[in-house]
Structure formats: structure tokens, C-alpha cells
């Protein structure tokens, strides 16, 4: 840690010039900053980060990736949700320095390099699953994480305890509602968010819980 802080600088999209590690400047004493490498959407970035800096602020302010949103800044709303090494987390509560070497995927990188949208992005458009859109990047990243978890057999609070361990969990409405409860939508677009995630998760519209909710 810290030994290579002069070796590399940020390859941030708005960077290019300078050469000084970004995130530096006036501020805390040197022992309160560390060179930290994050792979964000497949691209490595090495930054000299103030230890106080959370991942969300690095993404938005240092790397100009403003898709991840700051809602509550206390891990309560989910608007800042990103994938860290493939797992969804609240980027507002993760100290960037603690993530050295991690792979971060934000809404900007979810679909990969091509023009094609991620199936969740497509489904949110098709279902008109948002109004103001502020919570949407977090909803989509969270849903992507939730789909991976369900496929890996992770149970939720509403999963039938009789379902054998390790078996993929089908994402019906009740499962989606429970698994996305860490993402708030102040416009109240929840019904369509659930539909969009159901579409993306490949659930048939006449699934077994049809009519149970609402």
C-alpha cells in the first residue's frame, strides 16, 4: 500500500492531462491518503485517495461517472448501488481505500462495451419503470445483483424454507419486492419496477403469484 503512488495516475475520462494523481490537492496529511487502484467498468484507475473518500464520491467526482446517485448518503435509499466484485453494495458506505484491487461495475458499465442495453435497462424502458429516474441506476444495479444472488441459490426472507439449499430461487413478485427493499423510489414506481425485473429475470407474465399482489 502506498509504495506505487507515483507510478500511475488516473485514466479518468475527463483526465488526460496533468499527470498528478487525482483526488490529491490540499487536504489531509500524506499519511491520511493512499494510492488505490480500482477497476471501474473494466478500466483500471489509480488514485491518491483521501481515506475519508467513499466509493460513490470517487465515481462521481473523480471519475465523472455520475450515473450512481447520492440519495441519503447513509445506506438507507440504495440510489448509490453498484456491483463490487459482482456483488451489489451501497457505494456511499464503502471507503474507497478499502477497495484497492476491486472490480467495480456501475450503471455506465453494466451493458459492457457494445450498443446493446443490458436486459434490465431494456426492461425498465419497455415497462416505463420510472418517473423522475433518480433512483433508477441504483434499482437496476441492485436488480442485477439480486438476479445473480437468486441464480446462485441465495434465499431471501420470503423464500420457502423447504426449497433445498443451493437450488436457484425463482424470482416471483414477492421475491423481487423483498430483494429490492433496499432501493427506495420516491415517485412510487414500484409496481412497474417489479414488472421490469420480472421480465428481465425471464418470469412468465402468468407466473404462479399472478393476482396475489394488488
Amino acid at each position: 500500500m502506498g509504495s506505487d503512488m507515483h507510478d500511475s495516475t488516473s485514466g479518468g475520462p475527463s483526465g488526460g492531462g496533468g499527470g498528478a494523481p487525482r483526488g490529491a490537492g490540499a487536504g489531509p496529511p500524506p499519511e491520511h491518503r493512499s494510492a488505490t487502484t480500482l477497476r471501474v467498468n473494466g478500466k483500471p484507475h489509480t488514485l491518491l485517495v483521501d481515506h475519508r473518500r467513499v466509493l460513490l464520491d470517487v465515481l462521481r467526482e473523480d471519475l465523472d461517472l455520475t450515473g450512481s446517485k447520492k440519495g441519503c448518503d447513509h445506506g438507507q435509499c440504495g440510489a448509490c448501488t453498484v456491483l463490487v466484485d459482482g456483488r451489489r453494495m451501497n457505494s456511499c458506505l464503502l471507503l474507497a481505500v478499502s477497495l484497492d484491487g476491486s472490480e467495480i461495475t456501475t450503471i455506465e458499465g453494466l451493458a459492457g462495451d457494445g450498443e446493446e442495453l443490458h436486459p434490465l435497462q431494456r426492461a425498465f424502458l419497455d415497462r416505463d419503470a420510472f418517473q423522475c429516474g433518480y433512483c433508477t441506476p441504483g434499482q437496476i444495479c441492485s436488480a442485477a445483483g439480486a438476479m445473480s444472488e437468486a441464480a446462485a441459490g441465495h434465499p431471501s426472507h420470503v423464500t420457502d424454507p423447504a426449497l433445498p439449499s443451493g437450488r436457484p430461487v425463482p424470482l416471483d413478485r414477492a421475491e423481487i419486492r423483498e430483494r429490492l427493499s433496499g432501493n427506495l423510489c420516491r415517485c412510487g414506481a414500484y409496481p412497474r419496477i417489479v414488472e421490469a425485473v420480472r421480465d428481465a429475470a425471464g418470469q412468465d407474465a402468468a407466473g404462479r403469484t399472478e393476482g396475489v399482489i394488488r
Binding site: 445506506g75 440504495g78 448501488t81 456483488r87 451489489r88 453494495m89 451501497n90 458506505l93 464503502l94 441492485s142 445483483g145 439480486a146 444472488e149 434465499p155 431471501s156 426472507h157 423464500t159 424454507p161 430483494r179 429490492l180 427493499s181 433496499g182 432501493n183
Partner: peptide, 18 residues
């Protein structure tokens, strides 16, 4: 089972991952 159920009754998916 009580342990698994208790964990799943707490926080959110994002928080439990961290």
C-alpha cells in the same frame, strides 16, 4: 435455520453483502 432466517430478516441485500 433460526440463524439464516434472522440474517435474512435484517438490513437489505446490499448491506448484507458488505
Amino acid at each position: 435455520p433460526a440463524l439464516s432466517q434472522a440474517l435474512l430478516a435484517g438490513a437489505s441485500g446490499q448491506l448484507r453483502n458488505a
